[in-house]
Design a protein around this nucleic acid. Structure first.
Lengths: 228, 228
DNA sequence: CGCGGCGTTGATCTCTGTCAATACTTGTGG
DNA sequence: CCACAAGTATTGACAGAGATCAACGCCGCG
């Protein structure tokens, strides 16, 4: 295995908590594959017999609606796992996944995982933690959709990529703005206009990256309902 | 244990899949308690050391925002479990739970559950299935918030309480409309007006219950974007 | 009987979606 | 190396959905 791939893997939340030898045995049962931008990883309704880890690139998880409309539910970056829980429910993926940039994706077979859990039940805790993490993410997204305006959701999105809690910061936007807009539940036009409003709060956007003058200011803006 | 309580329990999705003797041992380690309307079950930020099952009544799960605003994320009915996954993550509940009607709630200790999983790893599959189910619910809610109008979300909400796919049906609304409105991401005023619009589609609402003239019609309405 | 919670209705305003036109970016082939 | 095309992003004008503020009706309960 490539050294950098191994580095990503041991950093991944799902794996870093479990014992090294278990991790090693799990990782032996993976298959790695490169995906082109726009390539499908699985489709809503496919039989759910595996889960995945992003080694490189970005993946969008989305629901399909009639007339070809897509609703983006989540975007996963390197080091993140997705679709871990779906295997344990009905047996079908409830959403589709697609690479939004060139990506390298690791695939873990469901039956192997099931056997591994039976042998090492501690692994179940890691899986439950991963599912719990995704639940929390979705709950936060729902809160934002219900309670925040478009500019506030963008501010929240930018802030999530940052560790700092005050001062200046730079955020890289590694994929199209239309995708971010969809993820945030708005149209590209609204995204554009909302970004313009954020300029007044010290957010400068230029080709693929945003410069935030004062993170603290954005945090404050995020929580309040009626601001210009 | 009361006979009806036992009946609810064995019907609960989390428990009906696991072996009877394991179920029995789990159920012995429960504690049952009655809650008044409006009584808190746990608070966002509390140490997450148990999960719950609704034996009777309704429970809302919500996020707190400043200025006392609440965002309802889910409403659980008898037979449903909640907060199963939170225990396996950071150790704190990411949302608050409160009885919205008089309710009887069973509490299952986290440490007992952990030990049970280590002894009977099959239990982990049931827990993962439950988490997966909640994930699916939240994904669907996100899709609805992003893609459906207020009347469509109400239609979806009504339809979810129904098994039939065509013909007439009756839906009981066992709690306040303001709560449903919040759960659906709209204000009570908008809920009221949106219901009025649904009247044109054969939905008659009268004090706590809705009569749907043709379920098929509502289903069709649910999927389409621009309708009067 | 009167009070308080709940629900509806009305008038108005703001935000976001829609439709359309125009830049900007990137890659491709001559 | 340039020109063009296709994809991506911004901007403008407008319309519609939902929020807000306020008033009123309904109903259960003390």
């Amino acid at each position: 295995m490539a050294a950098d791939e191994w580095a990503i893997l041991t950093q991944a939340p799902l794996f870093k908590a479990i014992e090294p030898e278990l991790r090693r045995s799990l990782l032996q049962n993976r298959s790695s594959r490169a995906y082109a931008r726009g390539e499908q990883i699985f489709q809503q309704g496919d039989s759910a017999d595996a889960f995945f880890l992003v080694a490189e690139g970005y993946v969008k998880l989305y629901r399909e609606r009639e007339r070809g409309e897509q609703i983006v539910v989540a975007i996963f970056a390197a080091g993140e796992t997705f679709a871990e829980a779906a295997m344990f429910l009905g047996g079908h993926y409830p959403a589709s996944a697609e690479a939004v940039t060139p990506a390298r994706i690791l695939r873990f077979d469901g039956n192997v995982l099931r056997r591994a859990i039976l042998e090492k039940p501690e692994l179940a805790f890691a899986m439950l933690a991963a599912a719990s993490f995704h639940l929390k993410q979705l709950v936060e997204q729902i809160e934002q959709l219900k309670a925040q305006s478009a500019p506030q959701r963008i501010a929240s999105f930018l802030l999530k990529q940052i560790k700092a809690t005050s001062g200046p910061a730079k955020v890289i936007l590694p994929y199209e703005k239309a995708l971010i807009a969809n993820r945030l539940g708005m149209k590209p036009e609204s995204f554009s206009r909302a970004l313009a409003k954020l300029r007044k709060l010290g957010v400068a956007v230029e080709r693929g990256s945003a410069h935030i003058h004062d993170v603290g200011l954005l945090i404050k803006f995020t929580d309040m309902p009626r601001e210009t």
